[in-house]
Nucleic acid binder design. Structure first.
Length: 998
RNA sequence: GCGCGCGUGGCGGAAUUGGCAGACGCGCCGGACUUAGGAUCCGGUCCCGCAAGGGGUGGAGGUUCAAGUCCUCUCGCGCGCACCA
């Protein structure tokens, strides 16, 4: 067998030095020394620290120096304009980083460094979304506290992230599991708890402003309706007490009413219970009838749960999407999730009964075609009807076998059977069996309000209890699902819409057309287009008191409690009133943070209580009250972390008011303009909220919707100054596996960033991740591709350094690897770099590069920016003399992408030419001079009939006429025009000539 | 099924938004330096053709002096939602 080590002894030094046993190929440049060196310097100098208004900027800090703020206590207006660049903070899993993480982080880091160079005050923080199931499950197995696992994982993530040289301000690091952090998560929960949504103002208000209905008004005339009665509250803003005591029973009713209006409320509702995870899940966490995490089965189960009233914000969450710069598809996903539909609620009378059934429809114009009605199996009226006789105990004459398919001897039993069957189906089965409709006739009837016809009422599980009114009017003529059902159960199908195209079959036509067969007493829609028909029938229904315009949303309130240990405990106590009924009460702010109790066993209790219930001493308070034992979902901490970064160490507020205004509101940042040192204008105006947020598309709905919701509540209550948190958001694309044979889903998470850093260096990994393709696209990983950019960085290195001194350095390095770092100084700058004046072509090359890189960075086109750097290098390699000034600008252009290498070269350039030291991280971004890009001559392609025949060279200032004659004179063009008529000559200035011949 | 997006060399991807298709990189071919190359440097590389030339951006039409880009139809792929009335 070939033994490399043995073979290597016989090799010449030149070979050996590069071809060490550790790596499979020669090292292009000593990145393994350069990268740790600069990471250490950045750390020590706190180079990337951002400052809040009011903080004193120390002497000697490079940011302070550039902006003339050394030693100053800068106000918001004295600080340069802000630029807030945010990454979706990671969940620190035990597996460590994969190559998908650095993709987004590199993109934001490049932008952060670029904006700093432009003179912005950049906030670029990182933290840990560290509550979550894996740490808890590991704790259940090992009895090791989740805190321990979490800390270990954070340490690994932090080490890996730091090894990539990102310019984070680590002084602002946050950890959602830190009590100093979740104190404020709990505090925000209390804000939700202590607020209600006022439909008049369309915003959240303190619960004290809640008006009570007349029957709940205190009888005492001296008592103002909304002040002083809120004796149960112990939290902030507690109302004055000492008023005459209200009747305790009335007070209980008032409390129940108040509690029903809070933004955080308790409800007994069917929720998704996941046996395997031992917890309930939010709608959003259930995918295809299985838990999103782990894919375990879930079942519907009624339980007492905390909910957040996100539905109150549906309209604003939808409308404000128009004010933010997110991708089309992302907005579409949010719109889809919110699911707004305009329509009407129509009431159907039940013969021989007091009850009415309301249905929701988006097609009130088809009311005349409603030939039966369907209720969800869980519809609350069914129970009532079973008792009251609306549902007959006998099948109506001649109906039974046809409608039930046999099975139940009377409607009551048929209903009970059917409900039982659907209830045992998981949601998965309900959707999987969607092809085959099921249902039973109830034996009851309703009256179609449009034409007075008696129609059958069915129950079927294709109607969902949780959407609309849980009941529909079925229009089989013009609804696919109703048609399918009607065909299966032989229900009448009538046409009420005429399709615009007469060839189209009306049966099952669901588009807009013209109303037909739609006339009743005092109303006719016939011949009206769908739009007008909708309006007319709705007006008619409203006038008759039979219906009203309504808007429905798919969005449901957010199920906010989990039966877990490793999450934020609710700052809530349960107490008993005089009747022995339990009610809840908020802890005062002063009791925060409420820490979870220590436990030996992290499992739920055998009787299905959350793990916190095991801590009896913690749960039961001496006064007889009990603590809430649910915890908050993982989303809670990530709903507001971008605000905590603004004041990560603030223990008096979730973040300081002034800091919030400065970093989130563009109006505050009107002081000095960026790029002061070169007088250039900013290429991107600073924005309200986070200027740029980058993260994976997996958070397109949940995290982003929840965070926007919380932000809006805080906005309503006056705690933040913008209605939206994230002004611009970009989803990075998935990195797919290297083996493209397997195609799509194989993620590149088998590639370990550590290996890449060891073999090619952090700069190469960064560069490659950006060079692969557009940030938002899915891209296959290619280690060969990493080598390509690695070679590019090696070529940059060789452009700058003197080969001989570098060779000597490498020889020493081989002999004494441990002394490498100190010997790097012996590497000399190449003698071809001189303090000479650049030539015109050199300036052109440089300024073309400046232009391209600048424009591409403004548009997040990293891949083409890098290719522009490569083009510059390819040119510069051919220069015999390389002007120092040109290379200096090039290093500034390179530094956002490959900061370590750039720092090293910057340093060498400055030492060699004795330029006073200035920090690369705050060096002004070069500005391109359009005048320098102008060439003396232009190459103009000449087409004949659109086909390229020649490229002529003309003076840049040639007139149209001159270009035209030059084109006609071209030897290559002549053969194609001689003997033909020149019909037209199109001259596109500076671009092209097209000669049209006939 | 509905909604959104995308189809360009052997591969990842460029293309001033209607103006030289294939920048840049990978891979491949050739050369130089070499005992050696998996290092480096130089040259080549859309297809057919010796060349002149011809063809070419999933396919078929169309608009235009000019189409990867705009329009119509069609095929294929990806993502999202999925009985939401």
């Amino acid at each position: 067998m070939f033994d490399f080590q043995e073979f290597a002894i016989a090799l010449p030094r030149r070979f050996l030095q590069y071809f060490g046993p550790m790596s499979s190929s020669r090292r292009q440049y000593p990145f393994h020394l350069i990268e740790p060196k600069w990471q250490k310097i950045w750390d020590e100098r706190q180079t990337f620290r951002a400052w809040n208004p009011g903080e004193v900027l120390p002497h000697g800090h490079d940011f302070a120096r550039r902006h003339g703020l050394e030693g100053k206590q800068a106000t918001a207006t004295e600080l340069p304009p802000k630029f807030y660049i945010l990454d979706m903070f990671p969940y620190p899993s035990g597996a460590g980083l994969h190559v998908g993480h650095p993709e987004g982080y590199t993109a934001t880091d490049i932008l952060a460094r670029y904006r700093r160079a432009q003179g912005y005050h950049v906030l670029h923080p990182m933290g840990w979304d560290a509550f979550g199931l894996p740490a808890e499950q590991y704790a259940i197995k090992t009895r090791q506290h989740p805190r321990q696992t979490t800390e270990q994982n954070i340490a690994t993530f932090k080490r890996q992230i730091k090894s990539l040289g990102f310019s984070y301000d680590w002084t602002r690091e946050v950890d959602t599991t830190d009590p100093r952090y979740f104190k404020w998560t709990q505090w925000i929960f209390l804000k939700l708890y202590n607020s209600w949504f006022n439909p008049e103002t369309n915003k959240a208000e303190p619960i004290e402003t809640l008006p009570y209905p007349p029957e709940l008004q205190p009888p005492h005339p001296a008592l103002s309706p909304n002040v002083g009665e809120d004796g149960q509250r112990t939290g902030e803003g507690e109302a004055a007490t000492g008023m005459p005591t209200i009747d305790p029973e009335l007070e209980n009713q008032r409390r129940a009413y108040r509690d029903s209006k809070r933004l955080a409320y308790v409800t007994e509702a069917p929720v998704w219970w996941c046996e395997a995870l031992g917890t309930v899940l939010a709608n959003e966490e259930v995918v295809d009838g299985k838990s999103e995490v782990g894919g375990f089965p879930v079942v519907r189960k009624p339980m007492r749960q905390w909910m957040l009233r996100i539905t109150a914000y549906a309209e604003r969450l939808l409308a404000d999407l128009d004010t933010i710069d997110w991708s089309h598809s992302l907005k579409e996903m949010q719109r889809n999730w919110i699911g707004r539909s305009e329509g009407a609620e129509v009431e159907f009378r039940i013969p021989n009964s007091e009850s009415r059934v309301a249905v929701f429809t988006t097609r009130p114009d088809t009311l005349f075609g409603a030939t039966y009605m369907v209720l969800a199996p869980e519809h609350p009226l069914i129970d009532q009807w079973l008792k009251s006789g609306v549902i007959p105990t006998q099948w109506p004459q001649g109906t039974r076998s046809e409608w039930t398919g046999g099975g139940a001897d009377n409607p009551n039993n048929a209903i009970v059977n059917y409900r039982w069957r659907t209830s045992i189906k998981s949601d998965l089965e309900r959707t999987e069996l969607a092809k085959e409709k099921t249902g039973v006739f109830t034996g009851a009837y309703a009256i179609n309000p449009a034409n007075g016809e008696k129609i059958q009422i069915w129950i079927a599980d294709y109607v969902l209890a949780s959407y609309g009114t849980g009941a529909i009017m079925a229009v089989p003529g013009h609804d696919t699902r109703d048609l399918e059902f009607a065909r299966k159960f032989n229900l009448p199908i009538v046409q009420v819409v005429q399709p615009p195209d007469t060839k189209t079959d009306w049966q099952g036509f669901v588009g807009d057309g013209v109303a037909a067969n739609s006339a009743g007493v005092g109303i006719s829609l016939n011949d009206l287009p769908t739009d007008e028909a909708k309006k007319k029938i709705t007006d008619w229904l409203e006038a008759k008191g039979l219906g009203k315009r309504t808007i429905n949303y798919k969005l449901r309130d957010w199920l906010f409690s989990r039966q877990r240990y490793w999450g934020e405990p609710f700052p809530i106590l349960w107490k008993q009133d005089a009747n022995g009924d339990w009610y809840h009460e908020a802890l005062p702010d002063s009791a925060l943070p409420l820490l979870p109790p220590p436990l030996e066993d992290y499992r739920p209790t055998p009787d299905g209580q959350p793990p916190l219930a095991r801590a009896k001493d913690w749960v039961n308070l001496p006064d007889g009250s009990k603590r809430e034992t649910n915890t908050m979902p993982q989303w809670a901490g990530s709903c507001w972390y971008y605000l905590r970064y603004l004041g990560a160490h603030n223990d008096r507020a979730f973040c300081g008011r002034e800091a919030e205004r400065y970093w989130m509101s563009p109006l505050a940042a009107s002081g000095s303009s960026p790029q002061t040192s070169t007088g250039a204008l900013p290429s991107a105006a600073t924005r309200p909220g986070v200027d740029l947020y980058v993260g994976g598309t997996e958070h397109a709905v949940l995290h982003l919707l929840y965070a926007r919701f919380w932000h809006k509540v805080l906005y309503d209550l006056g705690y933040v100054s913008t209605p939206e948190p994230f002004y611009k958001l970009v989803n990075q694309g998935l990195i797919l596996g290297e083996d493209n044979q397997k195609m799509s889903k194989a993620r590149g998470n088998v590639v370990n960033p550590d290996d890449m850093v060891n073999e090619f260096g952090a700069d190469s990994l960064r560069l490659y991740e950006m060079f692969m393709g557009p940030l938002a696209d899915a891209k296959p990983w290619s280690t060969k591709g990493v080598e390509g950019v690695y070679r590019f960085l090696g070529r940059v290195w060789r452009l700058f350094v003197d080969e001989k001194s570098e060779t000597e350095f490498e020889q020493h390095l081989t002999a004494e690897p441990q002394k490498g770092a100190e010997r790097m100084e012996q590497i000399q700058l190449s003698s071809s770099i001189q303090a000479s004046a650049p030539t015109d072509p050199q300036l052109r090359t440089l300024h073309a590069c400046i232009k391209k890189v600048t424009e591409d960075l403004d548009n997040l086109r990293f891949n083409t920016a890098i290719s522009a750097l490569m083009v510059f290098l390819n040119q510069a390699m051919t220069w015999e003399t390389k002007p120092c000034s040109v290379l200096r600008d090039f290093v500034v252009l390179l530094h956002p992408f490959a900061p370590h290498l750039a720092e090293e070269l910057w340093d060498k350039l400055h030492s060699a030419f004795r330029i006073p030291h200035s920090a690369l991280s705050y060096a002004p971004w070069p500005k391109y001079d359009a005048a320098l890009l102008v060439e003396d001559t232009l190459e103009i392609p000449v087409q004949v009939n659109g086909k390229l025949r020649d490229v002529i060279v003309v003076p840049a200032d040639a007139t149209q006429q001159q270009i035209e004659s030059a084109a006609l004179a071209s030897d290559k063009v002549k053969p194609f025009i001689t003997g033909k008529t020149v019909k037209k000559i199109i001259v596109v200035p500076k671009k092209l000539v097209n000669i049209v011949v006939g």
